[in-house]
Amino acid sequence: MRKGDLSFAIGAILLAAGCGWTATSWPFRSALFPMFASISLFVSCSVYLALNLFRTAHAREPADVGTSRVSSAATHEVADGEHRMREELIAAVVLPLAVMLLIWLLGFAIGGAIGVALYMWLADRGSWWSPIVGGGVTLVIVGYLLNHVMEASLFPGVIELGSFGWIS
């Protein structure tokens, strides 16, 4: 069983236990659905965990007999997969968090445009042409088209921008 699977299943079990416990303090009709969902989540993840741990324990013995070449290739594959997953996790956490922070500080128009330009600059390793165009287009679309023409009233950001404030 993969470490990630184990952690995810344990996380889900803890979440179910916590949610189920919280629901016990509510009136029956309010608690019915959360309790039902918590118990289902708890039971299904526990069964999954138990079945897989049992299978892993059984599979370990014959695996020792296997050839070293096969196990070395498999280890490489797993390592590649884990490396890629780590990269994707970083991309899924760092990138959205950075853009979200910029938007929170400067608003959708300016924060978004800076976010787009910065990402393109980092991804294109120092080329200036596409970041400037990307940031400019974003500023026009979000700041002018969405905020002013379509009156979408997107988040203006927590920092006062003085004379640039009209953009966001």
Partner: peptide, 12 residues
């Protein structure tokens, strides 16, 4: 070229 604009679209 797609990543950042798509991310912004998601947030909007």
């Amino acid at each position: 070229l797609l990543v950042a604009p798509l991310l912004l679209l998601v947030f909007i």
